[in-house]
Design a protein around this nucleic acid. Sequence first.
DNA 1: TCATACACTTACTTATCGGTAAGTAAGCAA
DNA 2: TTGCTTACTTACCGATAAGTAAGTGTATGA
Lengths: 190, 190
Amino acid sequence: MSEKQPDTRSAILSIARDLMRQLGYNAFSYADIARKLDMKNAAIHYHYPAKADLLADVIETYISEYRQLEKQLAGSNLDSCQKLQQFIGKYAQLIGQNSICIIGSVASDYNTLPESVKAKVAGLISLVTGMVEHTLQEGREEGVFRFRETPRVRALLIMTNLAAGVQLARITGKADFVAIEQAIVDQLIQ
Amino acid sequence: MSEKQPDTRSAILSIARDLMRQLGYNAFSYADIARKLDMKNAAIHYHYPAKADLLADVIETYISEYRQLEKQLAGSNLDSCQKLQQFIGKYAQLIGQNSICIIGSVASDYNTLPESVKAKVAGLISLVTGMVEHTLQEGREEGVFRFRETPRVRALLIMTNLAAGVQLARITGKADFVAIEQAIVDQLIQ
DNA sequence: TCATACACTTACTTATCGGTAAGTAAGCAA
DNA sequence: TTGCTTACTTACCGATAAGTAAGTGTATGA
């Protein structure tokens, strides 16, 4: 399967990210990661001494990726609707991977997360909420979007549609998520 | 399924239900339940031989409770909006309890649930979705509700708002859930 | 009164968890 | 060549997980 890994640490991180979305924080172990890399348990501890450290890196990586996306979108000539659809597309990708989004994963496990990462989780959520909120406000000013709520509340509505949408889709099927996706955009551009 | 056992069995069930919503399936143990009842681990196994049996009973109990609510609402003289608000109210209760809804709990843990209960989970979700869908359709026919989507899609939108709404509210605070709650109704009766 | 069924406890098993200590082969820098 | 670092392995730790077998006290009904 996997040959010699040039960078074990990033391989661990990538596997941890997948496991977080497929199983959740409490349902994967260092042994799962070690097995996939054909290494020993302790090798994972070498790179991430505690499981909380690994989770922290997963969250921080998402934060920096979203910040990067934010800048990328800001520097693009996409209209607000296209920006939103780019965001929605990230969720649509999860469907085929038997995965939920990282926010839904950490939010549902929140009570059992190490205290040291809870603040980072809140930071990630506030970052993403802010991005959606900003895109909505921008779209409204451009006349592309129309909605009654404040941008923030509308952002919450959309994010909850997406986060729980991928959760439900694992059980009831992809079609439900597609319908949700469609409805989100239709409501905005009505 | 449930025999006439005195209190212990139903006490176990009640605690399991709370733990499912507060921590999720993978993050609570028989020891947690035993501790709360001041009993030994094995006493829980006496009533529920395997953890899957306990989860199955939790799900089945929710199914029968929702069926009961369905009948109760059908036999009432509440209008559709009041019926919906009764449903929303069940979610609002969770906020003060540091809990998420059972559907969000099992949906996010779905990949790690025992195979034997996955079908029951799907049944619960389809039951609840059907109830919301029916209330929406009824409300539209009565002229109380107005919406563009099919009742099923609108039901999915509302359920995802609520399920992920309580998940987020544990992190960002109660106010966000209240805003979501308000927006759901406002959108329908606009 | 006696058997028996119930609701536990005691005492265990096996497996896995996150985590640590010590050792080692390979590479690199002086 | 020596000394140090990196990236692991081997071998373990105590704790906890789900689960089981066997025994115990108590209430009940024949």
